[in-house]
């Protein structure tokens, strides 16, 4: 594994222009995360956690500064290049799962593969593999409506890993789940980090959830105020 970190933020500022005033979310933020890490990001509401994930996922752009992920500068990429970059570098896991309600679990998981050159047969195999990883191979034909929140989130995780991205970005992945189900999801993430080498950034409000990560970043007033390493 090379010494250069997987994620590098240098002097990243992000401000939103609202009416006449400018609201600064980050000012000159620096951050580096090495490949294979599992980082929990905590902080009060409105501190910019989601904004940070958006920047790292190439879904939003910094006002200034550079973002380098996996050796690629994504802050200056064109829209279409960013789309392609997202397709093979990042997997997103959302608080509300964001599954397409009219598609079966398998069809949902297949979506990222539609952007690849894989044949239908290969796609089906990869989908089943991903569903097996999250323990839902027997639910392939079910629609999201027929599944519990925890199961839906596991389908979403399968979708995030099916195209084998290096980086998983999770925004409150257990925010909508009870503690027990949350524990299962977090264990799954832990397993993906440990056994599959996925680098994971996870935003959470819940200190219990953060304990599943290897390290915790506390975001406040646009700065990382401390960096704790859990036992």
């Amino acid at each position: 594994m090379p010494d250069t970190p997987l994620i590098m933020l240098e002097n990243v500022s992000k401000a939103y222009r609202k009416a006449k005033s400018e609201i600064s979310i980050f000012d000159q933020l620096n951050l580096s995360i090495k490949e294979g890490d599992f980082v929990a990001i905590m902080g009060p509401s409105g501190s910019g956690k989601t904004t940070l994930l958006n920047l790292l996922g190439g879904v939003d752009r910094p006002t200034s500064g550079t973002i380098t992920i996996n050796g690629e500068r994504i802050d200056k990429m064109s829209e279409s290049a960013l789309s392609r970059w997202r397709a093979h570098t990042v997997g997103f896991i959302f608080q509300f799962y964001n599954l397409m309600p009219m598609l079966t679990a398998a069809r949902n998981v297949e979506l990222p593969l539609l952007l690849t050159k894989l044949s239908r047969k290969q796609r089906r195999e990869n989908v089943m593999t991903a569903l097996k990883v999250v323990g839902l191979e027997d639910r392939a034909k079910h629609s999201p409506r027929e599944m519990s929140g925890g199961q839906q989130q596991r389908v979403a995780i399968a979708r995030a890993i099916v195209s084998d991205p290096k980086l998983l970005l999770c925004d409150e992945p257990t925010g909508d789940l009870d503690r027990e189900t949350a524990g299962e999801i977090l264990s799954t993430l832990q397993m993906l980090n440990r056994d599959f080498g996925k680098t994971i950034l996870m935003v959470t409000h819940d200190p219990e959830a953060a304990k599943y990560a290897k390290s915790i970043l506390h975001l406040d007033k646009g700065h990382f105020v401390e960096e704790l390493v859990t036992s």
Partner: peptide, 13 residues
């Protein structure tokens, strides 16, 4: 939200 999700996954505009 569905459209934005697909775009996040990498679908083009």
């Amino acid at each position: 939200r569905d459209i934005a999700t697909l775009r996040a996954i990498g679908f083009s505009s």
